[in-house]
Amino acid sequence: MKTRIITLLLISAITTTGLAQTSDDMKTFDPAFAHTVYFWFKNPDNKTDRAKFETSLKTFLKHSKFAKTNFIGTPPVATRDVVDGSFTYSLIVTFESAEAQEGYQTEEAHLTFIEECKDLWDKVIVYDSFGIKQ
């Protein structure tokens, strides 16, 4: 039940907010390994910084040899105390395995993205997780 709720929330978020892939590019979500990243920008309201980040991130994900699916999001207006909307962007990327995620960390497209955008953020937090069998 919890997995269904999370899946429905993710689908809802992809279709209503953020910068998710278009339906033509959408691949099936891979539950094997998820890499979730939160970015806090130095200047979160700077439109130039945001445009640079979005362009670089989209280019990186388009050229990644390891990322299977992805979701780029921004925080909604929080309506509950348990919702942390303090971040500037979130990124969820799925992989077929932990080994694929390790390859992603050192691939040229990922390293280029970091180099292009590292001066934009104050803080980055990563949560990696294995999917559990249903």
Rank of each mutant, 00 (worst) to 15 (best):
M1K: 08
K2A: 14
I5Q: 07
I6T: 09
I6G: 03
I6R: 07
L9A: 13
I11C: 10
T16G: 06
G18N: 05
Q21P: 06
Q21V: 10
Q21D: 14
S23T: 13
D24V: 11
D25M: 09
D25G: 04
F29Q: 11
F29V: 09
D30R: 06
A34H: 11
T48I: 11
D49T: 00
S56C: 08
L57S: 10
T59Y: 07
H63M: 10
H63A: 15
I72V: 13
P75E: 06
V77Y: 04
D81P: 07
V83R: 08
V83C: 09
S86Q: 04
F87G: 03
V93P: 02
T94H: 04
T94M: 01
F95H: 02
F95N: 01
E99M: 01
E99N: 08
A100M: 08
E102Y: 01
Y104R: 09
T106H: 06
A109F: 04
H110G: 14
T112R: 11
F113H: 08
I114Q: 12
E115G: 03
E115A: 07
C117Q: 03
K118D: 05
Y127I: 10
Y127F: 12
F130H: 14
I132W: 00
I132H: 13
I132L: 08
K133N: 12
K133T: 12
Q134D: 13
